[in-house]
């Protein structure tokens, strides 16, 4: 196996981005056949999922720092 130690130093939050990108593209591709539609839908979904996650993280962080 390839050593992964340098990857272990990356904050795990960054691993969410490729995951969200893959989810957005595959979901959009399963909805449409034309590429402009797929890409537009995927971009919208990517922004929406990322936004919700950032918001949820911010709320949880705010609560945690007050406890």
């Amino acid at each position: 196996m390839i050593p992964l130690l340098p990857i272990a130093l990356i904050n795990t939050y960054w691993f969410a981005l490729p995951l969200i990108l893959a989810i957005s593209l595959v979901y959009a591709a399963s909805r449409h056949e034309e590429w402009p539609r797929i890409l537009r839908h995927a971009a919208r979904l990517f922004v929406m999922i990322t936004g919700i996650l950032v918001l949820a993280t911010a709320i949880l962080l705010a609560i945690n720092t007050q406890v």
């Binding site: 909805r31 449409h32 056949e33």
Partner: peptide, 10 residues
């Protein structure tokens, strides 16, 4: 096929 049936081209 693609799930978006509202669009005739899909």
């Amino acid at each position: 096929g693609p799930a978006d049936r509202a669009n005739p081209s899909a």
